[in-house]
Simulated scan of single mutants.
Amino acid sequence: MAKLLKTTVFSSDTSPKETSLDKTTRIMRRITQDEAEVRHQKTARLRKARFESEANSSDS
């Protein structure tokens, strides 16, 4: 019989497989982050436009 090493018996070269719940969670987090980024960009753009509008109206 072949002699087994301690590292041979309990080693696992492959990572655990991603479950469907993990996959769903990962996808939803990415979607949520993407939506938040778009929302922040839109808010910044609107804020800048408002400040420019207020600056122009106060000059008149």
Rank of each mutant, 00 (worst) to 15 (best):
R26Y: 00
R47K: 10
I27N: 02
S11W: 09
H40S: 14
T25F: 04
R30F: 00
T25P: 01
M28N: 08
N56F: 09
A44E: 14
E18P: 06
D59N: 04
T8M: 09
L4I: 08
T43V: 07
D59Y: 02
E54D: 15
L46N: 15
A44V: 00
T7S: 12
R30H: 00
S58R: 00
A2P: 12
F10L: 10
F10C: 05
A44K: 08
S15G: 15
A55I: 02
K17I: 13
P16C: 07
D59C: 00
A44F: 05
D59W: 00
F51A: 13
T25M: 06
K23M: 04
T7R: 13
A55Y: 03
A36M: 11
I27K: 04
T25H: 02
T24Q: 06
A36V: 14
T14P: 07
R45C: 05
I27S: 03
A49H: 04
Q41D: 05
M28L: 06
K42C: 07
P16D: 04
K48W: 01
E35M: 11
M1L: 13
K3V: 12
F51M: 07
L4A: 06
P16R: 08
N56Y: 08
H40W: 14
R26H: 00
R26N: 03
K17R: 12
M1N: 07
L5I: 14
T19D: 01
S57C: 05
K3Y: 10
K48D: 03
F10Q: 10
R47W: 09
F10R: 12
K6Y: 10
A49P: 01
D59Q: 05
I31L: 07
S60I: 15
S20D: 14
V38E: 08
E37Y: 05
E54V: 04
I31K: 10
S15M: 11
S53C: 14
T25S: 06
R39F: 07
S60D: 06
L5K: 13
S57K: 09
